[in-house]
Design a binder for these strands. Structure first.
Length: 903
RNA sequence: GGGCGCUUAGCUCAGUUGGUUAGAGUGUUUGGUUUACACCCAAAAGGUCAUAGGUUCGAAUCCUAUAGCGCCCACCA
């Protein structure tokens, strides 16, 4: 057993405990699925191997660990499968930056050498990340750890690629793509970022004889215009539609067709749009619809290509200047104005994007899959809308994100999956360079798509094959994550009856996975793509539920970023305040899907809580004066009102926590537990137990602690496990079973009212003393006229005297006469006099305040009850409750008024 | 331009299907070496629930509009 001290320290020290406890868990095998229960699986969103863990990762780990520990304790056969993502572009960029410091580029090293460097870096990152995941207490099954780029996952990637290719969903084509001239790679639509900025809008004529005037922010691309588009409704231009004009644009001949397109806005600029099919996504589509010629002006380095007169060879910005200047000289430039514009930037390096036509691989999202008679888009929409393959619809928490999902999916365009970088899954396509049979000339580009690396061309038998240089978009491989991780070896991944089959025990036990938990910013990047890939390939949903957490912001509500220097490192926090405190701070007080702030102060406050729990345990273990592991039955007949109260409350906490966790309401579960622990247990019941010494107390305290530790364990695994050991338990808490409220149903029947009454009296006495400024050390005499509650108050005398009320002598009667010159409390239908300590001025003030309070409430209730509509229309139960309350307050008011009359 | 979220105590946030005098943490004030904890205990102050309408017997909660803040999507040539 780990680090057991004979003496229990006053303060809990997480640093001394956590490592040993984690090792103990790992050794026990508790992280691996066990038993025969129903499978419950979460596949961990794989952190990128680009460096270290951040608060977002920590949040993900904590939420998932809570679910996993909860369901594990509930007896499910639980698997949490960890892994990392190679994050192609991000990782490659990181390494390129490191090289740049030495004045090198990846081309200086060559593909193989460079990849070696990247793999090295990735391995180091991975090791750091794995260590950090453990530090957070994540109870995931390391024996099944996966990597998006390992052998098994590669097999899955290639197999799905081949399927898609053979079903005609993957095609290679020329399209306008987002091109980063710096990275020399394409970017997916959602990898493009926009920045608001001022740009010049040039309004000009192509040539003196051309009838239309157009506006543009990018004159340099106008060299490639092949049409001018106008709105079909536009009266000004209707007469030109369909005509073609030959013009001389600053020495470059253009042939411009006038076409109609609804996307052209009549009131923007001149209402006429110069169409540049090669360098604008919108224009490309107009060109497709009208069969226009595509003329490429800018090359992959961002320079003007040959054949454009004096402009060839210039960079795009240079060409822009030059053209503006020439237009002005020729008197064709009519206006230049500043407008707000969104500049497209590469999300990795902030370089302006150059839309370019280029040969890329795409997934067709609208083509019907022959096997399923539906398109990828239809399938993915249905999976959330009404369910597919006999599964219920995928549930998204919080539900509002469903709308975002639908909107995104409905507007999804063909997915460009090729990237011009080296790190990642190289596209499993080979081209034959054999010349012997004349069929496979260089450039014939008849692709060979294969899972295994092919040895020879199936057509000509040539062995001179070359693999496509490009790699796949990183989301292609992470899109397969929920099922690719459930294969243990490449051989288990097969094609059967057209669909992909994972022939493994894990897949049978754990797919579909239960819930995909991740940051709300990843919904489109990843969650949507998993739904696409899984429904397509394995004909099933990847998960039943999606839970999205918000972004972690700094204490000023700003996004954390290295450049702002406001990053709080989660691991550093665990070292400073303990992992349990860090975990709580990421869970309690947050709302699903909403961003939340984190600060040292917040974590610190939970550190205090952890310590509080530690001391609660310390007290209970001392009070019991034994650390017996075993619990004995409590004798129900010997319970006091306080005993019943704590047990009944514990019962309802059990139920609340269970229901909340099942609905992913982490925060409210934690809140309920915190309240019970600190207020009910520590502030009240433990205090009671110091004075109300009954035979059953020790047993009850032990029972409460034991169950409380179980309920807290998913949230604070370390400290609870440690206390569990202190209790002398032989087993590990992680392996214990969740308290089933049904086993404690008798507690449900216990009334809490009596002890609540005692509590209220005690609070009222403390308050009255404080308001009268009675010195704390001064004992006073109390006389209580208890009426029907005589027995109850009599029995609770020891509590009334000891729980910080400063009551020395206590006299309890059924009724009696008024006592003058005493502090007077009318509470719970009782009359309480604190004798000999009254400060007339203060007491008068206090009673006055009481009176005003009561009058306000009474007025409110009377208002309600005098309203005929309320009495007739509100539920009878509400009305009678109000009546009762009115009675009670009126009695109290009368008592206080009578007392006030003395002054 | 389209959509979403937020606006509740000085600060950070809860507030489940409308129903006691709207809660917590933190901060503030007052007072406490009380044999688990000063990382503690007790008490208190502090809110026209953004604004204006509406629905309802009853609204922080449902509806409409407005304002401010934040985010997402689309993108304007």
């Amino acid at each position: 057993m780990f680090n057991m001290n004979s003496k229990i320290n006053k303060n809990y020290n997480p640093q001394e405990q956590e490592k040993g406890i984690y090792e103990e868990w790992e050794k026990s095998g508790a992280f691996s699925p066990r038993g025969k229960g129903k499978g419950y699986c979460i596949v961990m969103p794989p952190p990128n191997v680009t460096g270290i863990l951040h608060m977002g990762h920590a949040t993900m780990l904590v939420l998932e660990d809570i679910l996993i520990r909860f369901y594990r304790m509930k007896g499910r056969r639980t698997l949490w499968l960890p892994g990392t993502d190679h994050a192609a572009i991000a990782t490659q960029t990181k390494v390129e930056k490191l090289l740049k410091e030495k004045g090198l580029t990846r081309h200086d090293l060559g593909r193989e050498k460079f990849l070696e460097k990247v793999r090295d870096f990735a391995q180091k990152s991975h090791d750091t990340i794995a260590r950090q995941i453990k530090k957070m207490g994540a109870s995931c099954d390391w024996s099944r750890e996966a990597f998006t780029l390992d052998e098994v996952r590669t097999r899955a990637v290639r197999t799905v690629f081949k399927m898609m290719y053979e079903e005609g969903l993957i095609y290679r084509g020329e399209r306008v793509v987002n091109w980063c001239p710096r990275c020399h790679s394409t970017l997916a639509d959602d990898e493009v970022e926009y920045k608001q900025q001022k740009t010049k809008l040039y309004t000009f004529r192509y040539s003196p004889d051309f009838p239309l005037v157009i506006s543009t922010t990018r004159p340099e691309t106008k060299l490639g215009d092949t049409a001018v588009a106008v709105n079909p409704q536009d009266e000004r231009y209707k007469k030109y539609i369909g005509k073609t004009f030959k013009v001389d644009f600053l020495g470059v001949p253009l042939s411009l067709k006038i076409v109609a397109d609804r996307s052209v806005e009549m009131d923007f600029g001149t209402g006429a749009l110069g169409v540049t099919p090669a360098h604008s996504l919108v224009d490309w589509e107009i060109a497709q619809n009208n069969g226009l010629e595509i003329k490429k002006v800018i090359d992959e380095d961002g320079r003007i290509r040959k054949g454009f007169g004096e402009f060839s060879g210039l960079s795009a910005p240079e060409a822009r200047e030059r053209i503006a200047q020439r237009l002005e000289e020729a008197g064709l430039l009519l206006a230049v104005e500043e407008i707000d514009n969104n500049l497209s930037l590469c999300y990795r390096c902030d370089t302006p994007i150059e839309p370019l036509p280029s040969q890329q691989w795409f997934i067709d999202v609208n083509k019907k899959i022959p096997r399923l008679k539906k398109s990828i888009k239809e399938l993915s929409l249905e999976a959330v809308e009404k369910g597919v393959f006999g599964r219920p619809p995928i549930r998204i928490f919080p539900e509002r994100f469903k709308k975002d999902y639908f909107h995104w999916m409905e507007n999804l365009r063909d997915w460009c999956i090729s990237r011009q970088i080296w790190y990642g899954h190289q596209i499993p396509v080979w081209y034959c360079r054999g010349r012997d049979k004349g069929c496979c000339q260089v450039g014939c580009h008849q692709p060979i798509v294969s899972v295994e690396t092919p040895r020879e061309c199936p057509v000509c038998g040539s062995k001179d094959l070359v693999q496509d240089e490009d790699t796949l978009d990183t989301w292609f491989s992470s899109g397969l994550w929920t099922f690719s991780t459930l294969a243990q070896s490449p051989e288990q991944i097969k094609l059967k009856g057209g669909k992909l089959v994972i022939d493994s025990p894990d897949f049978r036990d754990f797919h579909p996975t239960q819930v995909l938990e991740t940051g709300r910013d990843i919904l489109f990047f990843w969650v949507a793509r998993m739904i696409i890939m899984t429904t397509y390939a394995v004909e099933d949903i990847p998960f039943f539920d999606v839970y999205l957490h918000g972004l972690v912001l700094d204490k000023d509500g700003k996004k954390m970023s290295k450049s702002k220097g406001n990053v709080i490192d989660p691991v550093e926090m665990t070292e400073e305040y303990g992992t349990d405190a860090t975990r709580l701070s990421l869970v309690v007080g947050t709302t699903p899907g909403n961003d939340f702030r984190i600060s040292r102060e917040k974590i610190q406050s939970y550190q205090k809580f952890v310590n509080k729990l530690w001391n609660i345990a310390r007290f209970i273990l001392q009070a019991e004066n034994k650390r017996s592991g075993e619990q004995t039955e409590v004798d129900n007949k010997k319970l006091t009102v306080a005993d019943k109260w704590i047990l009944a409350n514990l019962w309802s906490v059990m139920v609340t926590v269970k229901t909340a966790l099942k609905k992913y309401e982490f925060s409210s579960a934690g809140e309920v537990l915190r309240r019970f622990t600190w207020e009910d247990l520590a502030d009240w019941y433990l205090e009671v137990s110091k004075f109300e010494k009954t035979e059953e107390k020790g047993k009850i305290l032990g029972l409460v602690l034991e169950n409380l530790l179980k309920l807290w364990h998913p949230f604070m695994p370390f400290v609870t496990e440690r206390i569990w050991a202190e209790m002398g338990k032989k087993s590990l808490l992680i392996e214990e079973s969740w308290p089933d409220s049904r086993d404690f149903n008798k507690w449900y029947g216990y009334s809490t009212d009596e002890f609540e009454k005692i509590k209220n009296i005690i609070v009222a006495v403390r308050n009255a003393r404080a308001e009268n400024k009675v010195e704390p050390s001064r004992k006073i005499k109390a006389v209580i006229y208890a009426g029907e509650d005589y027995e109850l108050i009599k029995a609770a005398g020891v509590l009334l005297q000891n729980l910080r009320t400063g009551i020395g002598e206590l006299e309890v009667k059924r009724k009696g006469t008024k006592i003058e010159r005493a502090i007077y409390i009318a509470e719970e239908g009782l009359e309480i006099y604190l004798v000999g300590a009254v400060d007339e001025e203060k007491e008068k003030k206090r009673l006055q305040k009481e009176k005003e309070n009561l009058e306000k409430v009474i007025k409110g209730i009377e208002g309600k009850l005098s309203n005929n509509d309320f009495v007739t229309k509100a539920p009878a139960e509400i009305v009678s409750r109000e009546k009762e309350r009115l009675e009670k307050f009126k009695t109290e008011l009368a008592q206080i008024e009578e007392k006030l009359a003395e002054f």
